[in-house]
Structure formats: C-alpha cells, structure tokens
Design a protein around this nucleic acid. Structure first.
Lengths: 210, 210
DNA sequence: GTCTATAGGTGGATAGAC
DNA sequence: GTCTATCCACCTATAGAC
C-alpha cells in the first residue's frame, strides 16, 4: 500500500478488466495481465488469491459504480415517460463509455450462467430493475401507459433494445451495411433515442409518445 | 465416407457444436470433443484442417438451417402485423429448440467480432433482416404502422427483445425472482407473445395492436 | 513488495503403425 | 479410416532470493 489504494493493485485490475472483457476468462493468461499492466505476473498472487479471485474483484469494482449511479434517473421525481427517455439515453452513454461492462456481463451469462455475478444481479433486481417496474406501474396507474402489458415484461423489452444493439454491434453493423465495426458512436446514440420512442409508443395507450 | 454423409464427421460436428456453445472456442479441447463424440481425437485432423476449421464448419451447418427456414414467415403473403407476431413466436420456438445457436452467436460477437460468422451475417442481412424491414415499410405505406420510426431501427428493436431474453436468461431469472435457471420454457413463450404485442403497439399509430 | 526460476499439468498438432 | 505415442509450447501456481 505505497499509494492511496495500492497503485499496483489498481493497475492489475485495470489490465485484467480489459483482457477479461476482450478475450474472456479462460483465454486470458496471468502473464498477459502482467504484461498489459506492467506488473510482474507473480505479484498477482500477492494481491489476489488467484485468477478467479481477481476476476470476481474486477466484476465487483465495475458494477459497484453502475449500481451507485443506477437508480438516480428512476427515483420517481420525473414523470414516467421522461424517466424512460433518460434511462435509455443513460444506458447508451454508459455502454459507450464502458465497453468492458457489457462484454463482461454477456460472457458471465454464457460462460458461467451468471454464477460469479449473482450478487451484482441481485442488487440490480432489487435496485434499478425494480425501480423501472415501479415507473411503468406508476404510468399505468396514472393512465399515461396502457395497462394490458405486464410491467416486468415491459421493463425487459425496454432495456433489451440498447443492450442488444451493443452486444450484436458487429451483426447490426453488417445489417446496416456499415461493416462489422458497426458505425460511429452517433449511430448508437441515434438508436438509443429511437429505442426510447419505440418503448414509449409501445407503452402509450394512444400510440403517441406522451 | 462409409455412411451417407460420413457418420464420424457428423458425430464430431454434433459434439463440437455443443461444447463450443457451452464452453466457448478456447476452452474446448480437441480431446474433449473426441471424448464427447466417441471418436478418436486424432481423427479430427483427418476430417478437418484443424480446430478452427471445425469451428467454422459448425457455424456453417447450424446457420444453414436457420437461413433455409428464415424468410418463410416474412414472405409478404400475410399482413405486416400478423407477420411480426409469427416472427417472434418462431424466434422463441427456434431458440428453445436450439440453445446452441444463440450461445454460439453471442460468443462469436464478443470473441471474434463476428469474423468467423461474417458470411452467415451477410446472408441474414440480405435475407430475413431485409424482409423484416420490407414488412415494416409495407405496414407504414398501408397506414397500419406509424411512419416516424426508422424501419431498420424498428426491425432491430423488434428482434432484440426475445434474443435478449434468452441471452440474459440467468439475469432475467434473477430479476423475476425465479433464480438463475430462468424459469420454465413457458415463460419464454409468454415473453415472446408479449414481445409481439409490445412491438406492434410501438409500431401502431393508434397504440392498438392492429 | 518485487523479482527469477521452475514445477507440474495440459493444450494443439503430427508421425507412423495397422 | 482408425489408432498409439509423442513433440513442443504454454498454462497456473509456488518457492525462495533480494
């Protein structure tokens, strides 16, 4: 602990986050993390119990910041429609700024059935997801949203769009004729705006976007 | 070729598909494929040029069948709204019956930026995806769908819901309080029906589901 | 706290008998 | 077509000097 929060430890976490996100857990080697962080590979075992412990620490650190900023936009102080617009815009900015997050999360789903991220997912369930469901229910009770949609299903449909866009960006890029790179960041922002209108149109009893 | 299509070759492909889908490309070993298929590991190099060649063959075989059945439901012989309902129901049945497909596809996105699946994605872009865009445009021109949504964006929002539900099933299961297993298959079918209504409500100028 | 060296195990791929 | 045996590279993790 020569630094405020042990600079060496942070360097290892930074490098590991990028490598785990890009290459996956199994394909990432200790020596690579050492090389990428500029830290001797053996030091990893000084700061962490092993490779898996490091992996869990990476997940924890990344999603701590998500959860801390998460529910702010859904706190009930804005009308439901505006809350949903802001949520999807925030989703896009967040995913643009932290491409590691959705890559790690997707890998965690298919590699380990979310086993290592179970705690974080429980916090998401009790936090942002439940808040979104409440926002939708609130809109339904006030007459702003149609009442024949199941709130939890509607919440999943709402958040699915932008996440899908990012995860399948290579495919979407090909679908849009932009190649596997998937177009500029502005395309993602444009899509997020569209996704907000799409969700609000789906939720609205009149088809107008409230 | 002692069999119609070389039974040994098929056995290798079957075992490799399951292992690549469950564990990923890197984590799957040649010896495991041999064990799971009941074929001597060295024979893999008789039938395929190597591990990567086998992987591409797996992708090709799996998505050949997708594409052959793909556009049938979108061929323009049914009204746009009904075509979209059928598409999402088909999507759910397809993903339920072939869990390897979305796992492999998602891995291909994050592991290789869809590099190995580029041909298949190009066929999807020129086939089912373009047909869905046409269906949406057709609905817009006939007045059944609102015209202020970009057809390609709307197509992505439409197909995103069910795919997200499957890929993030462990997370959705936790969100729904069903645990990481993600509930019964009927939940997926219920969600697919919801997704159809959600998309049609979003597309409809009146908010009714046509 | 940081390093070198290495143990112990497993990976993909090949040679060559049958 | 199928098998055994094996090469060589690389992995995680540890021992121990500094």
């Amino acid at each position: 602990m020569s630094d405020v929060l042990s600079s060496t430890r942070s360097q290892i976490l930074d490098a590991a986050e990028g490598l785990f996100a890009r290459k996956g857990y199994d394909a990432t080697t200790i020596k690579e993390i050492g090389r990428a962080s500029g830290v001797n590979p053996a030091l990893l075992y000084y700061y962490f119990a092993g490779k898996e412990d490091l992996y869990k620490a990476v997940l924890q650190r990344l999603f701590d910041t998500i959860l801390s900023q998460g529910g702010a936009v859904l706190d009930g102080s804005v009308p439901p429609a505006e809350a949903i617009r802001r949520l999807l815009a925030l989703q896009a900015e967040w995913l643009l700024a932290r491409p590691n997050s959705y890559r790690l999360l997707v890998r965690e789903m298919v590699d380990h059935d979310a086993r290592h991220a179970q705690e974080v997912m429980l916090q998401m369930a009790a936090g942002p997801f439940q808040l979104l469901c409440r926002v939708i229910e609130q809109g339904q009770q006030s007459g702003a949203f149609r009442t024949d949609l199941e709130p939890r299903f509607a919440a999943v449909s709402t958040i699915a769009q932008v996440v899908y866009f990012f995860v399948f960006r290579p495919a979407v890029g090909i679908f849009f004729g932009q190649g596997p790179a998937g177009g500029a960041d502005q395309t993602a922002r444009d899509f997020a705006r569209h996704a907000g209108e799409f969700a609000l149109s789906a939720l609205s009893p009149t088809g107008k976007t409230a």
